[in-house]
Design a protein around this nucleic acid. Structure first.
Lengths: 354, 354
DNA sequence: TTGAAAGCGCTACCAA
DNA sequence: TTGGTAGCGCTTTCAA
């Protein structure tokens, strides 16, 4: 329990006041600067003094005020994450849970906190980055869901705000944690091809996102390696509804695909539901694969074949790189290959070609 | 674009330095205190001065440093939310998206930021609250997912940390936003009873949570109003798996219920999946209802009858009350009744009693 | 209405 | 090794 000091609050009632370093110094009978050095493990303090200061601090339940420290060190001891999407979409996106947890693990260990903000439009998004930087609320930010010609990149340069990019594709920003998924998408294609599939489809994420493009390109490249140059690609937006719409579109064609790769699990779930509604059998008529490896993929029937990612280690690595960058350490990029193909019930050998 | 000042950084290269209030005052040719008063809309400043100061501030792209302001005003301009659960469970819990968004809307408008932290164990949870308060990182916190004899309540008293309770049941804390769901649960029971159901079951949340108890009690009370005193209650923990386990248990009995109310949608989805796996028809053999009104309830087949809540307005109201409390305004509690019964495909008239 | 100055809690520099 | 002190950027008294 912390013994706190008393001071005269409103209405002349005595209230507790958190101990400051002045109190600690006084109690230990040393100068403020000595108390500070002792507490922060700085050299140039005798063991005797250090012990005495520590004891005094313990007795007073002293916890340094982040505010004083912030002003003095010009650090906020916080980093920011801005999620740029509709709350409803966010709600449905199970990626963030693990990602946040990964970030948190690292931040906590290093005494940092996470400031989370949300925005809907791109302009609003930029405004929030700008604001966070200008009022010095955070020491750095996560640069997530990067788009083509992302306006945040020049902005971050202008603001001189440390940031870590989280991406699946090449990006002109350092530090960066890049999640390399070409191998596993290749594995998915090999697997489907091996099952006899020859007509393929893809429901992509929004074109403006680098990771949408990366997943699509990796898919197309892997198909190309098998000599398949045709793949019906439909644009989606990572939502359930867009998966359903894509199913209506792709499955109405006479040369409809027998295997479809969706850019995320949510889209795959929507695709599958619509396919079933349209009277197709899944997986007998159409094989479906998702991406992300979220819990949702196990809830729907048939359970979805998918590619599991590791949002947790993505978040943890990103946070670690960001803090290193803030500390002035030189950091480049880290490649993560945590993906794994998980085959479940939504994919089977190709139906006989009709 | 903000014109920033130049200062001599490392390696003798000139870097930009954010403008401070001193710069503004200098440029406007007034005292610092006048600049401060002018900018903050304080009285006692001539219009001429105010305009001059504002212009200077604009020209310099001045944004007040939160750090300086924090130290001076003894405010962090941030509030904390600590989510106490396993990241995996968090991932699956779609409630938080809307809740966070609701909080954010209000905070942003009032210049506050949200600090988000996660914890797994109860001890860790308390430790994080304590820490947040002692290092003065936040001005207040959200008291969510309250348990019976919640250890945070004495803790928050001890720390004198403003907090807002978010609850569905009665709680000894003010301010509080309470989500009253007795009426809508009553409506659900009336509906099921009207369909001819007479044997009921409930899969609850963990017993330690007040909202688990509240949902269960509201359910039992409503049944009682129809003269039904028997309801098979099984403990779950808000997870999909616990719903599945409950189905195995409840449906193996000869006097199995014909209608089941699950404490949340995720549990209902798990219950339903297992019921189907066991060879039961849903809804013909067993009607299932969830709670939360999450997107998931529309993804599974049959789509789930559920009770929609409004996490967004819950979050927004809570944030609003918390900020008022921090500002010293007296706030009591607000009752929200945003719930609505949504009937979908998982509930139908009772089967003939066998 | 304006300005000088104290103080918020801490770190870090520089003498002693 | 220690202590005095000057900031960090802001708000807020209190004189002028």
């Amino acid at each position: 329990m912390s013994a706190r000091l008393r001071f005269q609050g409103e209405k002349s009632t005595y209230m507790e006041r958190p101990a400051t370093i002045v109190d600690v110094a006084k109690r230990a009978g040393v100068a403020i600067s000595s108390a500070s050095s002792a507490l922060n493990g700085q050299p140039g303090v005798s063991e005797a003094t250090r012990t005495r200061v520590r004891e005094a601090a313990d007795e007073l339940g002293f916890v340094p005020s982040l505010r004083g420290r912030s002003l003095s060190t010009k650090r906020a001891y916080a980093v920011g994450l801005i999620v740029s999407r509709d709350p409803d979409v966010f709600e449905e996106d199970p990626f963030f849970g693990g990602f946040l947890a990964g970030i948190e693990t690292v931040l906590r260990a290093r005494g940092y906190a996470l400031v989370l903000q949300m925005s809907t439009t791109a302009e609003e998004n930029s405004e929030r980055y700008r604001r966070m930087a200008l009022d010095r609320r955070v020491d750095g930010v996560f640069l997530n869901e990067i788009t083509i010609d992302d306006p945040r990149i020049p902005l971050l340069h202008e603001l001189q705000l440390p940031a870590v990019a989280i991406t699946e594709a090449h990006v002109d920003w350092r530090p960066a944690v890049v999640h390399n998924n070409t191998a596993v998408i290749r594995e998915l294609v090999d697997y489907l091809y091996g099952l006899g599939h020859r007509r393929f489809g893809h429901v992509s994420g929004p074109r403006e996102f680098l990771h949408s493009c990366q997943r699509r390109d990796a898919w197309l490249d892997a198909l190309g390696a098998h000599g398949i140059t045709e793949s019906q690609v439909t644009d989606g937006d990572f939502t359930y509804a867009s998966g359903a719409a894509a199913a209506s579109k792709l499955l109405s064609r006479s040369d409809r695909p027998t295997a479809v790769f969706c850019a995320n699990d949510l889209t795959a779930a929507g695709f599958q539901a619509r396919a079933l509604d349209l009277g197709f059998s899944v997986p007998e008529d159409i094989s479906i694969a998702g991406y992300d490896g979220t819990a949702l993929s196990t809830y729907v029937r048939p359970a979805l074949t998918t590619i599991t990612t590791s949002p947790h280690s993505l978040g943890a690595t990103a946070a670690s790189l960001l803090l290193d960058r803030i500390d002035g350490r030189i950091v480049d990029k880290v490649e993560l290959e945590q993906s794994r193909l998980v085959v479940r019930d939504s994919t089977v050998p190709a139906p006989l070609q009709r």
